[in-house]
């Protein structure tokens, strides 16, 4: 019996099924919003599910010169990383399914797996477009990964812990950490755009330049896996930012203590869902308003304008906590 509970958490909630379902919903919100910003109508709510079913029904082809093992397993590794990391993020109450001191580092590590998997899948596809796209994935990783980590470090230092659950619990008392680390919040949001490979940072998947980059040789089920990886990474990344900066499933005035565990959990989930959708709204707004920039412009700009504010914010937090503690 002991093995069923973790299996349930990984496969159903808050794991695979929940993330896929919520990911499809968030994808619809994203596409509808972008369409409205562009003065169009946008797809109906069943569209992302229909796209997924269509992809699953297509033939799965592995190119002749590609490395079969790498090509076949790369999408699974990326997807697995995202699903595994969902277990450590508080989804319905300030306590996650599993937590320990240091799980923030583990989550950030697991969330870089999709990018590395994309690189490997593209590199071993034996297609010049995929090769160029794969190198761009790594170059872009330099740009956003360090600022993202530094930005997540801000709330960790403020809360004095390496565990996401501790950080969220600390915010449940009243002050959301966005107040203590506003610069880190902005940096984390922008770095998330790079992580999810959306405009203006969708350079590895530039449609008009290198025809979808590393994913170009994938079709059928494996392409569906890539799409799902980035859909679920949207949810998990947004949930991480919500947990670290926006208090996770907490909102002032809601009497969580008086509700039972089931009702409290449901309300907490709804609160978190609203926050995630607000972050998705921000992501869609940025996508509609900007053009795609070049890779060297992206790396230069990110290291300068994302790295330094994140560091500065950490410095300020350290200084203030020292003053308060001393």
């Amino acid at each position: 019996m002991e093995v069923l509970r973790p299996l349930f958490h990984v496969l159903v909630f808050p794991g695979f099924l929940f993330l896929v379902a919520f990911g499809l919903l968030a994808s619809w919100v994203d596409r509808k919003l972008i369409a409205k910003f562009q003065n169009r109508v946008g797809p109906p709510i069943t569209q992302p599910l229909a796209d997924l079913i269509k992809l699953l029904a297509k033939e799965d082809i592995i190119p002749q010169h590609a490395n079969r093992a790498m090509f076949a397993w790369a999408p699974l590794v990326g997807f697995a990383g995202v699903i595994a990391s969902a277990v450590y993020i508080p989804m319905w109450s300030p306590t996650a399914v599993n937590f320990f001191n240091g799980d923030l580092i583990v989550v950030i590590y697991l969330l870089t797996l999709p990018a590395f998997a994309l690189f490997l899948g593209g590199w071993y596809s034996s297609n010049p477009f995929a090769t160029i796209g794969a190198t761009r994935v790594l170059s872009q990783l330099f740009g956003y990964e360090v600022p993202f980590f530094l930005a997540c470090l801000g709330p960790a230092v403020a809360a004095g812990s390496w565990s996401i659950t501790e950080i969220t619990r600390m915010q449940a008392d009243g002050l959301w950490l966005i107040g203590a680390a506003p610069l880190s919040f902005v940096v984390a949001m922008i770095a998330l755009i790079g992580k999810l490979e959306r405009v203006p940072f969708d350079i590895p998947q530039a449609k008009t330049e290198i025809v979808t980059g590393p994913e170009v040789e994938y079709t059928g089920r494996r392409l569906a896996l890539w799409k799902l990886t980035f859909l679920t990474e949207t949810i998990v990344g947004s949930a991480l930012i919500a947990a670290l900066f926006l208090g996770g499933p907490h909102f002032w005035g809601i009497p969580f203590d008086q509700m039972g565990p089931w009702l409290g959990g449901l309300v907490g989930m709804v609160v978190l869902a609203v926050k995630i959708l607000l972050i998705v709204f921000f992501l869609s707004l940025v996508q509609a308003a900007m053009a795609r920039i070049r890779i060297e412009q992206m790396v230069e700009w990110s290291l300068l304008w994302l790295g330094i504010p994140a560091l500065a914010n950490i410095g300020v937090i350290v200084f203030i906590t020292r003053q308060m503690g001393a």
Binding site: F37, Q38, P200, A206, K207, T208, A288, M290, A291, R292
Partner: peptide
């Protein structure tokens, strides 16, 4: 041209 640089919104408008 807007589509080539990834600026879909200008393309639509």
């Amino acid at each position: 041209a807007a589509h080539e640089i990834g600026f879909e919104t200008l393309f639509m408008y």
